[in-house]
């Protein structure tokens, strides 16, 4: 066990424990805040996978953007000041059996498959490599995603807008 392994287990524990709370606690706000720790743990795992840029993007977009958006969503769709924001769950037993089987299947696939591992030397930074790839091999996807974001922005604004009286 070196420090790398310890850090991995730490981040994996943060991710999975907080993800467990995200899907089981009855309070929506608690779920949203546990999601914060899940995203943080996932970012740590990205760092351990030598993906520094993705890790920072993960924190910036997920924590700084999506999580805040979700919180605003929760706060705007519940009367938080006078009603407690608990939410029901349905189909608990069948869902847990089904997802338990799914998890067993997926984990066993991950565990027993003989992966062809060819680890390359971890680069100090993926920044330049990613930048080059984005503007050469993936430039069309990149541009399309830019367009998609613009469309999503306009669409979200027009859907959520209040109709004029």
């Amino acid at each position: 066990m070196n420090y790398y392994d310890i850090m991995f287990y730490l981040f994996a524990a943060i991710t999975l424990v907080s993800a467990w709370f995200v899907v089981t606690t009855r309070n929506v706000i608690y779920s949203a805040f546990f999601l914060l720790f899940t995203f943080f743990g996932v970012a740590g795992i990205y760092v351990l996978l030598a993906a520094d840029f993705i890790a920072v993007v993960q924190i910036m977009v997920y924590v700084g953007g999506i999580l805040i958006l979700l919180l605003f969503g929760v706060m705007l769709t519940n009367q938080i000041t006078n009603v407690d924001i608990r939410t029901g769950a349905s189909n608990l037993l069948p869902a847990s059996i089904a997802t338990g089987i799914l998890m067993g299947a997926v984990v066993s696939v991950m565990w027993f498959t003989d992966w062809k591992i060819q680890p390359t030397e971890a680069p100090t930074t993926t920044l330049k490599i990613l930048g080059r790839l984005l503007l050469t091999d993936y430039v069309l996807v990149f541009e399309l995603l830019g367009l998609l974001l613009l469309v999503a922005l306009i669409g979200a604004a027009s859907i959520a807008r209040r109709e004029k009286e």
Binding site: T15, T99, V106
Partner: peptide
Amino acid sequence: LTVSAILFSL
């Protein structure tokens, strides 16, 4: 991959 699988199931 295991972490990812458990996260997926959750």
